[in-house]
Design a protein around this nucleic acid. Sequence first.
DNA 1: TTTGGCATGTAATCCGTTACATGATTAG
DNA 2: CTAATCATGTAACGGATTACATGCCAAA
Lengths: 198, 198
Amino acid sequence: MPPNEEAPGRRGSSERRSRTRFVVLGMLTYGPASAYTLRKRIAASVGFFWQESYGQLFPTLARLEEDRLIQGQEVTAGRRRRRDYEITASGRDALAHWLDEPPMPQPERNELLLKVFFASEGGLEALRSHLVDTNARARAQLDVLHSIDSGLQAAFAEDPRMPFRLLTVRYGILGLEAFHRWSAEALRALDDRSPSVS
Amino acid sequence: MPPNEEAPGRRGSSERRSRTRFVVLGMLTYGPASAYTLRKRIAASVGFFWQESYGQLFPTLARLEEDRLIQGQEVTAGRRRRRDYEITASGRDALAHWLDEPPMPQPERNELLLKVFFASEGGLEALRSHLVDTNARARAQLDVLHSIDSGLQAAFAEDPRMPFRLLTVRYGILGLEAFHRWSAEALRALDDRSPSVS
DNA sequence: TTTGGCATGTAATCCGTTACATGATTAG
DNA sequence: CTAATCATGTAACGGATTACATGCCAAA
């Protein structure tokens, strides 16, 4: 049998699992945007649980346009040119189809936990400082999310998608609260075993 | 200029950030092991927050041995040959050094939240079923972790690393509890808006 | 003895980040 | 006028998964 008859895995429905395309499609339902605008839009809305880099965004935009899921248009403002994209009807279909599929269980990878797990092979003071940092960062992020939450609550009734957005924020808050509690608890446990230097 | 004059960025201290090497080193502090054994050991201990595949494990083992951080030895049992590795003194040093460095903040990526965020572009029944699945899986994983926790508590006093291990389990439990609560809460919110079909 | 699982590995490929490069505006 | 920042892009690279390949062992 000749290899690659009809090139089975090239790029049809058998994408490995690049969710980047769908973030792009989803963000374009909020209105046309350039790559730069898209990146800012992503960072401002889902940034706390999803990020995209240009190196990913630009190729993805090119391929989405090839597939007619988005439509690009050259725009010249002043002397500056850029390319704005809008989602097409088939783009909306593709998005809706993806939304209906169950999310792939994503493999967790937590470097902090690795360092906790192997902590007895290293210095305990280092572990302690990692935990302190962790705790402070969780606290700070929690404050950010709380203020985002308040801000969104104010604009509630207007947009039918607001409730869903609030749900993602709520997820972040509950998760960070747990994380914050855990790091505090871990610090207490650590100090119980090896009482602080005082 | 000839390429790779002294190979500036080849592989010294400028590793991008492969934590795989350190999981391997850490696991080898529990005793010598082959690639296969290592994989099982990883799955059984840190599996709920860290996994490694063979495609990653084998090259990493080869490179760690090149760097003299581990020492391999051919073993023949029956007619079967395998390669067992043990950690060297410099391997322990490298591990300890890595443990002291603060963990890199890892970019979150949550596909479920993406689907929640864009839910209004898809079917709400699909979203609901994703949430139900999510809730059930969290519940199941929670049960697993609770039983792991009990099992470890029993063997507490023996191993000085047990407390650290318990901390990672505790992290999993707190996180999953939050996740479980969130998905239940989200389901309630969803049913409030679009009362179920009954 | 054939099936399936255990054990060891290799190869291809893709995802995603980082670093680099460049022109256009705006501020000082 | 120069520096900084905005905006748009490209190239290189490494990490990680998936799929493939092979041989030994045990059980039916």
